[in-house]
């Protein structure tokens, strides 16, 4: 058990070494430039090597059940120093943040975009009850708890939210790290994107804000301050926004769209 953990740590060191040596790469695609950070390489390497076909012999010791359990159980603790770092980023900017506090609160409502944009698409694709679970939010712990309490996770709604949860866990960080700079290219202000990065998931927020920092390094302290302030706000207000706004709006839109079809 202890021996296996050492394999895991050694493996992590090697992955970090490779990811950092690849460094920051920019990839021009069409009119956009996508920046790929070491963190993207790190998650891709570890995910690919974790595929079943690779898990033989030596890799089986690295990706042993106990090591995978260790990683998922303690991921949140490994993430804590990052959260502590955010405190130091917010502190020097606190006055400025409070002076535009209402902007932070307003942009929280943007999280309703999951319903407003996601639900019509889901209905158009022919999804019904799954769509309720899949578009309530980005499928993090809050939505998972709400849906499982109301419909259970075995229901169609439950399957919808679980699917989003899985997809988000696997690809959320990669998605946001690629997507955030594209919006910057489209002309959205860096401060606005920093605020929007507080989507409610630690790794997605880190990926979104990290890629913004890499794109505009001069703004590092502002980006991190805004992103983490907004993330904190999402942790406080997220449940309220979901229960009092997302749920009723979703119910209304769902009835409207599904009925008008018949």
């Amino acid at each position: 058990m202890k021996g296996n953990l050492l394999y895991l740590i050694a493996f992590a060191l090697i992955v970090i070494f490779i990811a950092e040596m690849i460094g920051f790469q920019s990839l021009p695609i069409g009119g956009f430039t996508i920046g790929l950070l070491p963190l993207v390489f790190a998650i891709i390497i570890t995910m690919v090597l974790g595929l079943g076909i690779f898990r033989k012999g030596f890799w089986k010791k690295v990706y042993s059940e106990s090591n995978i359990n260790f990683s998922s159980k303690y991921l949140i603790f490994i993430m804590l120093p990052l959260m502590a770092r955010y405190g130091a980023d917010v502190a020097p900017h606190l006055r400025e943040i409070l002076s535009i506090g209402w902007v932070f609160i307003i942009q929280e409502l943007g999280n309703l975009g999951t319903v407003l944009i996601g639900l019509p698409i889901a209905i158009m694709l022919g999804l019904r009850r799954e769509a309720i679970g899949a578009t309530l939010g980005i499928g993090r712990e809050g939505e998972l708890a709400y849906i499982s309490e109301k419909y259970t996770l075995e229901s169609k709604e439950g399957r919808g939210v679980l699917s989003i949860y899985i997809i988000g866990t696997l690809f959320g960080a990669i998605f946001f790290s690629v997507f955030a700079p594209i919006l910057l290219d489209l002309g959205i202000q860096i401060e606005a994107l920093a605020m929007a990065s507080g989507v409610g998931s630690g790794s997605m927020m880190s990926a979104a804000s990290a890629t913004l920092v890499a794109t505009v390094p001069d703004m590092e302290s502002t980006i991190l301050a805004y992103a983490s302030a907004s993330q904190l706000l999402t942790s406080f207000l997220g449940t309220f926004t979901m229960v009092f706004l997302a749920v009723p709006i979703q119910r209304f839109m769902y009835k409207l769209m599904v009925r008008s079809e018949k």
């Binding site: 943007g110 309703l112 980005i138 401060e191 605020m195």
Partner: peptide, 23 residues
């Protein structure tokens, strides 16, 4: 659902970014 996921993630991020920009 994978397609929906793309729009869900885009929706929350673009929604917040636009409101923040306006604010």
């Amino acid at each position: 659902i994978a397609i929906v996921a793309i729009f869900v993630f885009t929706g929350t991020y673009v929604g917040s970014a636009l409101l923040a920009q306006l604010g």
